[in-house]
Structures are given as structure tokens and as C-alpha cells.
Amino acid sequence: MQGHVTPTKTYLTIFGALMICTILTVFVRLNLGIKSFAVAIAIALVKATLVILYFMHVKYSHILSKAAVVTSILFLLILLVLVSMDYVSRSWQPRATPWEKHQVLE
């Protein structure tokens, strides 16, 4: 009565896609020897999206479930981005070293 019933075929298709992604990501790492952050994370993102949309029925569910997904991603990004902001920009400071030729910035 309440929710959308996903046909078995869809589940199996998604499962197949997830398997292919897993094999791909391991293959890239083991056989091509590529240690790429971007590739590994991109594949993980694809897998997560498939699970969220189909296994967790977000594609067919109430706007609030979608909002929950968006909110959690958004606030996770706030955490990660603002924390990295500190670490990335720490080295931007004019180098505070004792014997440096003094920069005249005044």
C-alpha cells in the first residue's frame, strides 16, 4: 500500500552494476597498478549513488528522504571543507622563520 515495489529485475541489474564497479576498482588498482584517489572515489560515489537510489528506494520515495540525503552530504562537506581550509592554508602564511630575509609588508 505505502511504498513503491521495485521489480526483482531492477534489483538484479543494480547488483550487477555494483559488482562490475567493484571488479573495476580492484582491477584498476591491482592490474593496472594505478593508485588514483580520483578513480577510486569516483567509482565509490557511483556505487553509493546506486545503492541510495535503488536499494534504499530514494528514487521513488518522499521528498523528505531526498532532503535527508542532501542534508547529510551537505553537512559532511561543511565539516570536511572547512577543516581542510585550515590545513590547506596554514602554509600560506608568510613563512615565520627566524632567520629569513625579512619581508617588508608594512
Partner: peptide, 13 residues
Amino acid sequence: IVWIFLFPLLYLI
């Protein structure tokens, strides 16, 4: 999903 991210982060890269 958590594992989907842990696997590449801890094993692959």
C-alpha cells in the same frame, strides 16, 4: 555504503 567508501580509502589508495 560506509564500506563502499572504506574499501578504496583504506585498501586501494
